[in-house]
């Protein structure tokens, strides 16, 4: 078997809290992600999901360990090389993080300014991207004029601008209603299919995993405690966390049974 497209090896990350104590947020994380995969990472709030995904493009510096993408060790890159590589690692966020001072067009154009010097060519690319995410009609609007789903589409277009081979998604659908979540996931699936972009989707919503991910890893207190294909993990969850997510061991389900019992 060929080596994985993204390899995370023995990754550790700690923070100092306000009292100056060290808190271990990631502990010996190891993951192999194949090219073109939609890889989900699911865990409760505070499990270390964001920290993990931010270590991949080094928005957060890992303490030790390696992140290797397509044979290149990201943790070893200098600032200039890292910035160059980041152009091809898209990232989308729960809060969209669009630039309010810019139109949709300018938001998508921003990452292209470093890579396409010709203004006309850049414009073509922006319009092409707006079309991919279905916002051709909205290019001269400002972010404040858009709905949540539309904002995330702009975020996606912006992340795809420089034809990335990796897309990192940190709870990209968590601020959206269930219906909009599905349309955004449909778009991500389409992009994965058509452009072969490898995706890492961080989420605390099992629907996202079920709907969009080929594989899933469960993270708890900074450790990967379970991993496999989505069907494997969700059909036969082993860890308590996975059981809670799948509803096998859900206090919500239990409470609901009790409530129905009480009404009878």
């Amino acid at each position: 078997m060929s080596s994985p497209f993204i390899e995370i090896k023995n990754l550790y990350k700690s923070f100092k809290n306000s009292k100056g104590e060290t808190i271990q947020v990631l502990e010996d994380v190891n993951l192999d992600i194949a090219k073109g995969e939609m890889f989900g990472i699911m865990g409760f709030s505070g499990a270390g999901k964001s920290t993990l995904v931010r270590c991949i493009n080094r928005l957060e510096e890992p303490d030790t360990g390696d992140v290797i993408i397509d044979g290149m060790n990201i943790t070893k890159l200098g600032t200039a090389e890292l910035n160059k590589r980041r152009e091809k690692i898209g990232m989308i966020f729960q809060t969209f993080n669009l630039f309010d001072s810019m139109t949709v067009f300018e938001n998508i154009e921003f990452p292209l300014k470093a890579t396409i010097k010709d203004k006309e060519k850049r414009k073509q690319r922006v319009l092409e991207l707006a079309d991919v995410v279905g916002l051709a009609e909205k290019v001269y609007d400002y972010p404040s004029q858009l709905s949540g789903g539309q904002k995330q589409r702009v975020g996606i277009a912006r992340a795809l601008a420089n034809e990335p081979d990796v897309l990192l998604s940190d709870e990209a659908t968590s601020a959206l209603d269930p219906q909009t979540t599905l349309t955004v996931l449909d778009l991500l699936k389409k992009i994965n299919r058509e452009f072969g972009v490898t995706m890492i989707l961080i989420t605390h919503e099992i629907e996202v995993i079920k709907y969009a991910c080929d594989k899933v890893a469960i993270i708890e207190s900074g450790k990967i405690i379970e991993e496999g294909t989505t069907v494997e993990v969700l059909e036969a969850p082993k860890s308590k966390t996975a059981k809670i997510f799948t509803g096998v061991e859900s206090s919500l389900a239990k409470a609901w049974e009790d409530k129905k019992g009480g009404a009878r």
């Binding site: 493009n57 160059k84 990232m91 669009l98 630039f99 921003f110 990452p111 912006r158 420089n162």
Partner: peptide, 20 residues
Amino acid sequence: GKIEAARAMGAGNFTILTKI
């Protein structure tokens, strides 16, 4: 968040300050 979005796109500090 906006600053990190720009950073994730590979923008340098000076660009982030002046353009964002």
